[in-house]
Design a protein around this nucleic acid. Structure first.
Lengths: 244, 244
DNA sequence: TCTGCAATGGTCACTCTGACCATAAGGCGG
DNA sequence: CCGCCTTATGGTCAGAGTGACCATTGCAGA
């Protein structure tokens, strides 16, 4: 910067990007859109967009994009800020800083096309992560961070219920954990654990036979947000002889 | 937005703000600066500043500010992104989005004045948190988030060693935990636990009598970053009759 | 040499977890 | 209507981990 030239506050383009997860056909899935413009025309990417105005609140922007991309009411799903990515060359057209959010949604509607009328769809997370060039820009890195965040939050918080419908069984909740963690959990031990956590689940009083076999008790999410004695996905690995 | 007027990408001013923690005189402390300009002239605030240029990398900006504010080499301390705060009116002068980072530093040098030649100093965290209006803007909220993040990371990661010097004793590490968590830990149980965590601590082979009493073994940080079986700050609360 | 202090060694009861098996309660088909 | 299959839930046991507590050790200082 020329010393004689007065410094002015740099201004930057800001976007919000979304990592929206659900469980579809027993697979941990992420919402991706097909880019309708260059660069990376036709590539898959996380949905998102610029702030609508220079003084749009970040969370408002994220909620707007979330509603647009999923057709869901942001007040009724779990979403939270992930991180901000700010390498200057992450978009070759121009400098963009992106504030990323993750969302966990229950059985989703068919995704609706976004502003660019591009194809949106759910993709199995493990398939996308296995292909380093699958996503445009730095969205592969962002997705990996979001997946790890989601996996971790299932240990310490009650957000797993966000993947379930309004009423669910312990077995259905266990399938959420098994699908997100790629790990089989013992049905008995899992049930004993989650029913021990205070205010994790609230019994509805009803039951269901929708999964066949013995009728299962139904639950709703309880008021707790944190799990004080966490459900550790790696604990079984600590056993002698444990392989992964 | 007027439909007939073409939309242009909004540009926003971006800052990085720092929550830098240390332990000073047995107190969990945060680095604050005294504002040298309006608004809130004279108020305390977290240090930070605008991007130097429109295409300065976010992490580079954070490292630059960190070096300026603490006099420490960012390559030698633990720092990480906290979150991004983007309410449009958080600064009454103009719209500013701030990307916040937290840093954990060992026995600090005296803080150096920053660009505005304003006073910088270390303040006990609990005193600042206890006074809702202590900090300018939304820095009180940011500080609360950073404190909670720091406290949580001591459970699941090895970052507590960042508060120690190059070589430290288990007792000194325990004091870190006790100071950050405001909680007394049993010396024997703490030692047994941290020495059980794989690669948390590496014995130097030496010992020290600097704390009086029986000579204590010295350790350096081991290579581990995550603590698979976490050290839970709240576990003692789970005992029957436990009060907080 | 003795005392005090802090670190470390040790122990026990209790809690939590992983593995496993048994029983119960439905739905479905013959 | 009965038998079988499936899934959910009840129960148990051994081992790991934790909290509380006390004893011993190894230094420094008087």
């Amino acid at each position: 910067m020329d010393r004689d030239e007065p410094w002015t506050i740099p201004l930057v383009a800001v976007t919000v990007d979304l990592a929206v997860f659900t469980i579809l056909e027993d697979r941990f899935s992420v919402l991706l859109v097909e880019r309708g413009i260059q660069p990376d025309l036709g590539s898959l990417a996380l949905p998102g967009g610029f702030l609508a105005t220079a003084d749009e609140d970040l969370a408002t922007a994220a909620a707007r994009e979330l509603a647009e991309e999923t057709g869901l009411d942001p007040n009724r799903i779990h979403w939270e800020q992930l991180a901000t990515y700010g390498r200057p060359d992450r978009d070759p057209r121009r400098r963009v800083v992106t504030v990323c959010y993750l969302a966990l949604v229950p059985s989703p509607p068919s995704p609706s096309p976004g502003g660019d009328a591009r194809q949106a769809g759910w993709h199995p997370v493990d398939e996308i992560l296995a292909d380093p060039g699958a996503l445009a820009f730095d969205h592969g890195e962002i997705l990996a961070d979001a997946v790890e965040r989601a996996r971790g939050k299932l240990e310490y918080t009650t957000v797993a219920t966000s993947f379930c419908g309004p009423d669910f069984t312990v077995s259905e909740l266990r399938h959420v954990y098994e699908t997100v963690w790629n790990r089989r959990l013992d049905p008995r031990n899992f049930q004993r654990k989650v029913l021990t956590v205070p205010d994790f689940l609230t019994p509805t009083g009803g039951s269901t036979t929708r999964n066949g076999g013995r009728p299962a008790a139904l639950y709703r999410p309880g008021p707790a947000q944190l799990i004080q004695l966490p459900i550790l996905r790696t604990r079984a690995d600590l056993k002698p002889g444990a392989g992964d």
